[in-house]
Simulated assay, not measured.
Amino acid sequence: MSPASRPPLLADPRMRRMAAPLAVGALMLLVWQMLCTLLQVPVYLVPSPSAIGHTLFADWSLLFHALLVTLRITFFAFSLAVGLGVLTAFLFVQSRVLEAALFPYAILLQVTPIVAIAPLIIIWVKTPAIALTLCATMMAVFPIISNTVLGLRSVNPGLLNLFRLNRASRWQTLVRLRIPSALPSIFGGLRISSGLALIGAVVAEFVAGTGGTSTGLAYQLLQAGFELNIPRMFAALFLITVTGVLLFGLMGLLSRACLSRWHESEMEA
């Protein structure tokens, strides 16, 4: 199909990028629905998309409230991870000795399983919401530190020498050279960290197993499993997945808005 013969919506490259995954997703749902119907798969084994949609609609108030609880923890953890990660990276880039001394301990946050230390944090911190936020923050902070340090270090040597030749201070070099050069890497870290903050919040909720009015989607998954309400499990999992995709897309839009006018990574081909 030539560009002139394409429908107006598909002529836009951005619309084509959105339409392609949506078409694949719709096809997968159609095949899933047909297999469940033709094979008469029991709903307690694999519910059909129509059964999941019906449950999502019937239990919307319960699941939406749980989604808000999980989102609140996710956003608090993500904001805290961004603040701590960027400030830590700024400190590391000022001193190689400081980076060599402290960076291994930042790596510990990444390699230590959150399910192993989450019970300790929940015991030490009396407030469940704060404990869950700390767990999710620990899981999300390392990509911010790693990508920001990489971006701040990856500056053009010629420009760095020019700043030194003009006797620019450390602060001027950081604000006017290192930070603009590091923005693509920082936004890459934001994409990764946003998803990890959501995963950390869900994992922490699993470990905590808190009930009552402050229950997140992880608790609804556990409760649905205990009750063998498999469609509700899939509905809660669907909300978690869609939330993760939307967070990633939001970070992508933010990156495009900030970089599309001057950096080749976000310019239209």
Rank of each mutant, 00 (worst) to 15 (best):
S2G: 07
S2L: 03
P7S: 12
L9D: 10
A19P: 02
A20Q: 13
P21C: 15
L22Q: 08
T37P: 10
L39V: 00
P42H: 07
P47N: 09
G53L: 10
T55P: 01
L56G: 09
A58C: 03
D59R: 13
W60V: 10
L62P: 03
L63F: 05
F64H: 12
A66K: 06
A66E: 01
L68Y: 14
V69Y: 15
T70I: 11
T74Q: 14
F76Q: 11
F76G: 04
F78G: 01
L80M: 13
L80W: 07
A81F: 05
A81I: 04
L84D: 01
A89T: 08
L91R: 11
F92E: 07
Q94K: 09
S95L: 10
L98V: 14
E99L: 13
Q110A: 05
Q110S: 03
V111W: 06
P113Y: 05
I117K: 06
L120V: 14
I121D: 04
I121E: 09
I123D: 12
V125R: 00
V125C: 03
T127H: 15
I130V: 15
I130L: 15
A131Y: 11
L132W: 08
T133V: 14
L134F: 14
A136I: 03
T137R: 02
M138P: 02
A140H: 08
F142E: 01
P143H: 07
P143L: 09
S146E: 14
N147K: 11
V149W: 02
V149R: 07
L152Y: 00
L152A: 02
L152K: 00
R153S: 03
V155T: 09
N156A: 09
G158V: 09
N161R: 15
F163M: 04
L165Q: 13
R167L: 12
T173F: 01
R176E: 04
L177V: 11
L177A: 09
S181T: 15
A182K: 02
F187C: 06
F187L: 14
G188K: 00
L190T: 06
I192Q: 02
I192T: 13
L196F: 14
L198T: 01
A201N: 05
V202K: 06
V203K: 01
F206D: 05
F206W: 11
F206P: 09
G209K: 08
G211S: 13
G212T: 07
S214D: 14
L217R: 03
L217C: 05
L221S: 03
Q223N: 14
A224H: 05
L228Q: 09
N229R: 04
A235T: 03
A235E: 02
L237P: 02
L239I: 03
I240H: 05
V242E: 06
V242D: 05
T243R: 01
L247M: 07
F248A: 06
G252I: 10
S260R: 13
S260D: 10
E264V: 15
E268K: 05
